[in-house]
Design a protein around this nucleic acid. Structure first.
Lengths: 326, 326
DNA sequence: ACGCCGATCGCTCATATGTGCAGGAGTGTA
DNA sequence: TACACTCCTGCACATATGAGCGATCGGCGT
């Protein structure tokens, strides 16, 4: 069952170890076949095979899998398996949360450059993390870039959704469909009116042709969400009582990943969860947060909407600890 | 011809790298076959093979050969090949030469425990390095231990040849044949008389039954030799003019490894070079010295008497630099 | 001396893997 | 459009490797 070797090293003397090292070098570093090595050393190929096993068991041969740029291969793999994702990319958590967010943005940017094919229709939601992604993006095939939701007025100072969409589209050389409207409106009627606006309708019209969407995952508290602080205390509390624990593009989800429908759905200018579900590739970028954020990410993953997750080691660790088996 | 990969890493984005890392982990760390991996990931086995190549070329898979206890596998191997030795064992040179010498002694001690079979006849010469070896020795199969040469009176304070032979024999549980005589005598007649002494003759009688001999290599100057300082200035200069550059068990050699015969041969109580040549396994322990010492070791190796060398990285480096090709 | 035991070796045969090559998709150019 | 070119794929076939097994050998107790 187990194939971990943790024997105490050196079962034999220095001559044997040097011999094993020489054989191991031939095989692992110089790429010789065991048959060749056997001929060179005057041994049977079986002897060589057993020597190589011994060299590994004794820790003479040391193999590790490492990724450049602070990527975490092990948690990436475990996370992908545990949540049945198409891809999971985990970056090492850094001391400074802002640095971690920047690293997430950088990796997400390069991920898009990698997976987006020419002439795709790319949808972008907004968060501080996605803003960082926009800033880090340096190349992208020509494609259509569509904004997935309205603007949070609280977060326009550093450049909001519109600026990110424009920048990414310009980089790609394709058309942009920004949404000039607030994310959250006081009532459904106002929202409906805005959706009829030609510019906004043009963006909404692309939602069911999206090939790739990038969204953020928010929690349901002050620290881990951009939507939560934009609501009245009464509304916050009401949604909390409905079990809301995560938010993606202003769509609410409970801890099991079920969508929590509410009046908010009608009051926001955003792609809907159902539309998101039809997008072949949904990339969620979420990390640089505390344990509550990790729980929100777990809820978002359980919704089944996400196909690719970009997060950091700390969040991944919490997710893996809470979910021993799928 | 070359198989070194030194490409710049990351030809692709993070998703691909994480994917390669996952495949590499399966293959190299979990020991799955490429066919299994191909089935799991829905790829052809050829694709998996190419992915694994890419993972190695990109530096995602990192394999290195390392030995415990400050052994240097690469130089060991190169030295063995360059000089056609049966074995070469190189220990890392340490800051303190005394520590290096101790390390050499320790490794040589464990080497003897490893290669000496029960009932062998083991010959021991003397040097500060071999003294360290005697001190570090902790186990040895039962065997006969024969002293190979007389005692240098200058070096008896810390325990000389006789003590080392006795200690090793006691450890092994076998008989000891020490030599109670000086190494160098004023004239051939005295030496001949001593060789007739029953105790000394008993040791000499074992010389042609030796199965393993351990010798030290000395240079031909104050710092790197124990014999040189024991001679008169006139004798030192005379041998120098004869091209002497190395000494093993009071046998002299020039830079090409040719034995330099002289009156000294008749004046020493020691195994002869010719007798040494008949010993199936001759272990030379030499290191913890400067460049002149390294040259002496090279000369000793070229004599063809040595089958196994124990030395340190600094000496090995000099030897390899001076001798690019055999 | 005898025979038991464990360790080690090299064999056979089934599997896994490498090599060279031909076909097909995309791409830039005449 | 036709063409040449590159890149990538998967195949057939030779080779390398792994799994299990019987033979052999040295130690060791009776």
């Amino acid at each position: 069952m187990s194939d971990r070797r943790s024997e105490t090293a050196a079962p034999s003397g220095p001559a044997e170890m040097v011999r094993l090292a020489a054989i191991a070098r031939r095989f692992y570093l110089e790429g010789r076949s065991k048959v060749e090595i056997a001929e060179e050393f005057g041994l049977s190929r079986f002897r060589v095979a057993r020597d190589l096993e011994a060299a590994r068991a004794d820790g003479i041969v040391h193999i590790d899998i490492r990724l450049p740029e602070r990527l975490d291969p092990e948690r990436s793999e475990r996370l992908r398996e545990a949540f049945g994702l198409r891809r999971a990319i985990v970056v090492d958590t850094l001391e400074d949360p802002l640095e971690t967010r920047r690293a997430l943005g950088s990796v997400a940017a390069r991920l898009l450059a990698e997976i987006v094919r020419p002439d795709e229709v790319l949808g972008l939601a907004w968060s501080r993390g996605l803003q960082a992604m926009g800033a880090e993006m340096t190349e992208l095939p020509r494609c259509t870039v569509v904004q997935l939701n309205g603007v949070l007025s609280e977060h326009t100072e550093a450049g909001g959704s519109v600026e990110t969409v424009r920048r990414v589209a310009a980089l790609s050389g394709g058309p942009a469909y920004p949404i000039y409207a607030p994310l959250i409106l006081p009532d459904a009627a106002t929202a409906a009116t805005l959706r009829a606006d030609p510019g906004i309708a043009a963006a909404f019209a692309r939602f069911d042709r999206l090939t790739t969407a990038v969204v953020a995952v928010g929690g349901w508290d002050e620290r881990n969400s951009t939507v939560y602080p934009a609501l009245s205390p009464e509304a916050r509390e009401r949604y909390s009582r409905m079990g809301v624990c995560a938010e993606m593009s202003a769509q609410l989800f409970d801890a099991d990943g079920n969508q929590v429908r509410s009046d908010l759905d009608e009051r926001v200018i955003s792609i809907s969860a159902d539309q998101l579900r039809e997008v072949p590739e949904v990339v969620a970028v979420a990390g640089a947060g505390d344990e509550a954020k990790a729980l929100a990410v777990g809820a978002a993953l359980r919704s089944g909407l996400v196909s690719t997750l970009v997060t950091d080691s700390a969040v991944a660790e919490v997710l893996l600890a809470r979910k021993p088996r799928g």
